[in-house]
Nucleic acid binder design. Structure first.
Length: 553
RNA sequence: GGGUCCGUGGCCUAGUUUGGAUAAGGCACCGUCCUUCUAAGUCGGUGAUCGUGGGUUCGAAUCCCACCGGGCCCGCCA
């Protein structure tokens, strides 16, 4: 829960005393530049058959007692409400100095579990898949920031067809070799080339699945070993872009622990039979198979078991999934809630697929970019740029900056786009460090730190803190941070934070070019305060989406 | 074919969940500003019938319907 001076709520409450019919869609934070808040009279005027002028008088009267309101005016149906110049800056400063953060938080008892990435341990993570990680990690950080007890989890698929193929491929093509990452991937790719149709797949892989699920010690041990090797490389790739997942849950643990049997037991009155195979029916008649006729389990059944397991330690469960899993998510949610009385809050964030230079990612066409490759190319590009701009810095410092720029850029370029949209990856755009990008954000931070580092003593200034338009806009944008944070949390949309960062930086850059800080006499104290608040809040917000901030760059 | 998501200047994106005051940024292009705190920046300019057509409304990028274009799903794969 966020703690801050919620002006919006206070204004609304004050107006409600004299005008109980008001609801929170009548009042908006104004974006048109007319005022700070704007009350729209249209709805109430019709509803109450009261003129806009009369409503205006009532509102003006109601706001008389509100100390931070400086002006109330009626303009073409809008009641424009202005806030005292000093209020925004004072409020933010108070929180930062007294509580250490703005907004402050109150620990929420709800335990939130966010599952993300969960890519099959059958190959390195590529840039398309990393969209999942970037979104998931962003959402997790937003929850933590808002005071939730948050855990992230990676579901390791070490059972089923794909990993059986990983095993079989290695046995077929590299039996005498060490199970290195390279050999495992090679075997996997080769076996997939031979599995040209579903019959071929069945023939090669199904006996292995059967062995696996019947508890054959050899295959169990091998698959765990192979998956661990591939998973390790994925974990390392994620680490490079600053993502660390709290828990790894192995799918196979539900096969062995008996959880799967309890799933079938508790669903027994819903389960139907199709020549030995087991399924449940959705309201539209669609059949969801839980078990093959040969007795082995299917993904849906194991995913039920997994979600029951999640519920043991969480009140709110969030899964980040590719849009190909959308129907699965809907059906899973239905079965859990309607058939099994599932109580935790369950949300799915699905994201559109990424493409590469306008065409589909495709492993077999070689049309793919691994996360590692992207990181190293971005770092290289970053190094080129920093070297040119900062020839004065040491080699190690240049590398440090290049890496921060690369990682931040990668995450920012992915997270800033709404998850529901398809995202086309283009090298040219991804490696550009200008405009609406992470370096743009980082650079503004470095500028603010540079100013602060040059401040020795601050002369006491004019305490009334009247502001010019640039100071005011910056102060107001800083103040608005909690609203964006709350929006991002409620809608599970980390891009709201990315866009807020851009908006905040824009207001800072305008301020920077118009308002000198050092040596500005009476203005200095106020401006230093603005710069200080800016650097803290920008770092706070940007860190949520994985931007790394440097004092200089 | 059925379901579902997306469609905003030449290109990319915000705004759509909660309908409101001249549709907001970036890239590219043209021009401006470094003897003020880092020019990865600032300012100005060119460029949008918000996919199309209806509807609801005092008011629609936003809500409803139809259509068009694209993604994804429709497996005893995951």
């Amino acid at each position: 829960m966020l703690i801050f001076d919620d002006l919006f709520a206070q204004l609304l409450e004050a107006i409600k005393i004299n005008l109980p019919e008001v609801d929170n869609t009548d009042l908006v934070s104004d974006k048109s530049g007319h005022a700070d808040y704007s009350f729209r009279t249209f709805r109430l005027s019709r509803l109450m058959k009261t003129s806009q002028e009369d409503l205006f008088s009532i509102i003006k009267e109601a706001l008389k007692s509100v100390g931070f309101v400086s002006n109330v005016a009626l303009s073409s149906g809008y009641v424009n409400i202005s806030i005292l110049d000093s209020f925004f800056l004072e409020s933010v400063s108070k929180y930062l100095s007294e509580r250490g953060q703005y907004p402050d938080t109150f620990q929420d008892p709800e335990r939130v579990l966010i599952e993300h990435t969960s890519t099959n341990p059958t190959g390195p993570i590529h840039i398309g898949r990393s969209r999942n990680s970037v979104i998931g990690d962003g959402i997790a950080r937003i929850f933590k920031r808002c005071g939730y007890r948050t855990t992230t989890q990676y579901y390791v698929n070490d059972s089923g067809k794909q990993v059986a193929a990983l095993y079989k491929g290695f046995q077929m093509y590299h039996e005498k070799d060490d199970p290195t990452l390279g050999n495992l991937l090679d075997g996997y790719q080769k076996i997939y080339k031979t599995m040209t149709d579903r019959e071929k797949e069945k023939e090669l892989v199904e006996p292995e699945i059967k062995r696996y699920e019947s508890g054959d010690a050899e295959i169990l041990q091998k698959i765990r070993e192979y998956c661990s090797i591939v998973l390790q490389s994925i974990v390392e790739s994620l680490q490079k872009i600053g993502i660390k997942i709290d828990d790894y849950v192995w799918e196979s643990s539900f096969l062995r622990g008996g959880e799967l049997d309890s799933v079938f037991e508790s669903l027994s009155d819903k389960i139907e039979d199709d020549s030995g195979a087991k399924f449940v029916s959705m309201p539209d008649g669609y059949k969801i198979y839980l078990r093959r006729s040969n007795g082995t389990s299917l993904y849906f059944a194991r995913d039920i078991a997994y979600h029951l397991f999640k519920a043991l330690n969480a009140d709110w469960i969030i899964d980040i999934l590719g849009e190909d899993h959308k129907d699965h998510a809907k059906n899973l949610s239905y079965v859990l809630k309607e058939f099994m009385g599932y109580t935790p809050r369950l949300d799915f964030v699905t994201y559109g697929f990424m493409s590469l230079e306008g065409s589909k990612f495709s492993t077999r066409m070689g049309n793919i970019v691994s996360l590692d490759e992207f990181v190293s190319r971005a770092t290289e590009e970053g190094l080129k740029v920093v070297r040119e701009k900062r020839p004065d810095l040491s080699e190690s410092r240049l590398h440090e900056i290049a890496e921060a720029v690369a990682v931040s850029s990668i995450r920012f370029s992915i997270v800033k786009v709404n998850a529901s949209k398809q995202l086309d990856f283009r090298w040219k755009d991804a490696l550009s460090f200008e405009g609406d990008s992470a370096p743009y954000v980082m650079y503004a931070y470095a500028r603010s730190r540079s100013i602060l580092s040059r401040i020795e003593s601050v002369p006491a200034g004019d305490k009334s803190w009247t502001m010019n338009e640039w100071e005011r806009r910056l102060a107001r944008t800083l103040f608005s941070y909690p609203y964006h944070l709350r929006d991002a949390l409620d809608s599970l949309r980390p891009e709201i934070i990315a866009n807020y960062c851009l908006e905040l930086v824009k207001s800072f850059n305008d301020f920077y070019s118009q308002c000198p800080v050092i040596g500005s006499g009476e203005e200095t104290e106020k401006r230093v305060m603005l710069v200080k608040n800016f650097s803290e809040i920008l770092k706070d917000a940007g860190s949520l989406i994985g931007i790394k901030f440097l004092k200089e760059m």
